[in-house]
Design a protein around this nucleic acid. Structure first.
Lengths: 341, 341
DNA sequence: TTGTACGCGTTATCAA
DNA sequence: TTGATAACGCGTACAA
């Protein structure tokens, strides 16, 4: 059977195409009676408008693109879910692309989004200098919003979290339970890490706790094995210090969870010898042994708000007049046994 | 500035639209010299064909839809990543919708996919009877493939895992390390659970280990709190049996991880008192304390193969002649300290 | 080798 | 209140 189109409907109803179109779109120019007749008939034939043709005509696709570094970590996938649910609610489809933390793949993803039928783009860059020129070009053609890694030189809306505040809170908590010697394990050297580190420093200043440079540790996350090895070396080194730390903050999901694994392997008692608190967005934190004190990021909200802001921008006719906002959401801290025994 | 289109190019080059179109598409009818000229000019003006118009014309959108129950679990998000990467490699875009394990949302997602510009659909139903009629309708219009939850009455390609084999292997391992009394904790009562349970039974038969009905436990996963409570009760009950189990198999990601949490809370030594092995697709298994013996599903492969099979189907002109395959991938088992100390 | 003309399925303008 | 017609941007059979 041939597909029912406006044309076939019109033919069958002995009306013109435009009449049918208007009737289905509830135009004020059409009489109630014909509207009724057309709609019923269309329904019976299960008429589905061709979205492609509609978009071609109207210039709107009701689709937003999403580019993010990966989607297998809890944090990222929660963001994605937030994006998806909110977009659905607003009648938008979501096209995703993953850059896999790879600059070249990110370039391809961006390129492929340019000439794709999307009304707007949500972009989480892999770092603050990756593909900036290309992104700027795209911004000229399409509304765009930066999320999570907001340290990106693009004049547009941005949605992320209060990173410094997160580590500040973690330090505060540790200081309060009398753990003044706090190390911090950082991952790849991004803007986010810098901010979390800043929070760590601010807390030390605010609570008059001396800062020890030795306690700030960077690990490269190339492979799980290498990460474990690096961490192991660092921990051994730290514990051999004359003044070993009594607590460690993990500055990212990945760092934190692997940190616990390494500590377990070295049979270092948590929290007796070392308390641990870290950024982590997984329910699994509760099931860890010991259960993990976490700094949780409002991932779903990041996704939801990003979509809303983007759609808002899409609907604004005159984009040159928009005042770009940077929205930073608060983190929250869950106290569990890895710090409070 | 106006967008460059075929028309604007043609005007600027003093050629007809069709010539330009053919030149850009490397038609044999066009001379090398003009091709060159056109392409260079198009490049200079950064011409991007309007995908919408192309699709409208050709009937192909280079887009596949994906509907899955949720995307925040490691297993699902790994599948999604596999889908996305393979689709990208094959020049397909990916539109996602999440049904959130909710039949009504699934219906909406399916509905919205019908009249959307997609060339094919990857579908993971929430259970074996949800929205079957609607799915059948869609299958009539669009190539479709069922993944993961393949127990779904639709005649089409299906891609999943050898579920029975997974639990069979787990039992075998436990039996080999002399743990003959093995309980199994199951989640919601789906086809997959049934198969995993079947593998459990088969293993008992194959290795002549008597089956104890008491050892088969079902938990409802409504909320984390409730799940924990249920599990706690079951574990207490099991340990009070005259013949308490020496090992527990977790039949899903969620079940397994929470199981460990509850055991930790009850201060039951793993693996000394109870060995634990479970389905789990997270690297975190390594960081758990004790590190967790897991049955791992090839999530990325499921995604990749699903896409390939679907695209294959899309390219076949005569879909009535296709022999539908059910592809079931093997699981693998990672031995760690939760069983082997 | 190039150009003309039409159609894909809509919406929108304007005339009837 | 309805209908003819043009356009959106592209591909393609056919004519030149």
């Amino acid at each position: 059977m041939a597909k029912t189109t406006l044309k076939s409907l019109a033919a069958a109803l002995n009306m013109s195409v435009s009449t049918v179109s208007k009737a289905l779109n509830d135009s004020y120019e059409i009489s109630e009676s014909t509207k009724q007749r057309v709609k019923e008939f269309a329904n019976k034939l299960d008429y589905q408008p061709n979205v492609l043709a509609q978009s071609l005509k109207t210039g709107k696709t009701q689709t937003i693109g999403v580019i993010l570094p990966k989607m297998t970590s809890p944090f990222e996938s929660q963001i994605l879910e937030g994006i998806q649910l909110t977009a659905s609610a607003l009648q938008y489809k979501v096209v995703i692309m993953s850059s896999m933390e790879n600059e070249e793949l990110e370039r391809i993803a961006l390129q492929s989004m340019v000439n794709k039928p999307i009304d707007g783009l949500l972009f989480c860059p892999i770092h603050e200098r990756s593909n900036v020129d290309l992104a700027k070009q795209i911004l000229n053609r399409t509304p765009m919003l930066i999320f999570d890694r907001t340290d990106y030189p693009l004049e547009t809306h941005k949605v992320g979290v209060l990173n410094a505040e997160g580590t500040f809170g973690a330090c505060k908590h540790l200081f309060e339970i009398r753990r003044k010697k706090v190390a911090i394990f950082c991952g790849s050297n991004q803007g986010i890490t810098a901010k979390r580190l800043a929070g760590y420093r601010q807390a030390h200043q605010a609570f008059h706790v001396p800062l020890q440079q030795d306690y700030v540790v960077f690990c490269a996350i190339n492979s799980v094995e290498e990460l474990h090895l690096q961490m192991e070396n660092h921990i051994v080194r730290l514990l051999a210090l004359p003044d070993p730390p009594e607590a460690i903050i993990g500055s990212s999901d990945t760092i934190t969870t692997h940190l616990l694994g390494v500590l377990a392997k070295l049979e270092i008692k948590v929290p007796e010898r070392i308390a641990v608190v870290g950024f982590a967005n997984t329910d699994l934190a509760l099931s860890l042994n010991p259960s993990l004190t976490t700094i949780r990021q409002p991932a779903k909200d990041i996704g939801a708000i990003s979509v809303r802001k983007l759609v808002e921008t899409i609907h604004k006719s005159d984009r040159s007049q928009i005042e770009w906002e940077e929205i930073n959401l608060p983190t929250s801290i869950q106290l569990r046994r890895s710090t409070i025994g």
